[in-house]
């Protein structure tokens, strides 16, 4: 197995995540797209770590996971409270950021 196969998989996953974020309206799906992008990045980190025989990449992957876990907590809390106040989780119904 060459590194390039892992990198191709990572970029495919990242693209899927990006498209999900750009195209889908449901915030939870959008959120999953974000997770997908993070994990694609993690995969790339690990592939490079193995390629160079260096643990720095694995270390970075751990950091990403920790941050992603924290982000999921905050993000889901926002989505839940949004749903409670506005009875919708569609990102296009919300343009409160303007204000």
């Amino acid at each position: 197995m060459t590194v390039s196969a892992y990198l191709i998989l990572a970029s495919v996953l990242f693209t899927i995540g990006t498209v999900t974020v750009m195209v889908r309206r449901n915030s939870i799906i959008v959120f999953m797209g974000v997770e997908l992008m993070l994990n694609a990045a993690n995969l790339a980190f690990l592939a490079f770590a193995r390629m160079w025989g260096n643990v720095d990449g694995q270390l970075a992957a751990f950091f990403v996971m920790v941050v992603a876990a924290a982000e999921v907590v905050v993000g889901l809390a926002i989505i839940v409270s949004l749903f409670r106040t506005r009875r919708t989780v569609s990102v296009d119904d919300e343009n409160l950021l303007r204000h």
Binding site: T18, V21, M22, R25, V91, D92, N95, L96, L97, R98
Partner: peptide, 14 residues
Amino acid sequence: IQNGYARSYAATML
């Protein structure tokens, strides 16, 4: 540009 839609901001970032 500041329309408040998260997806549009994401597109800008992309």
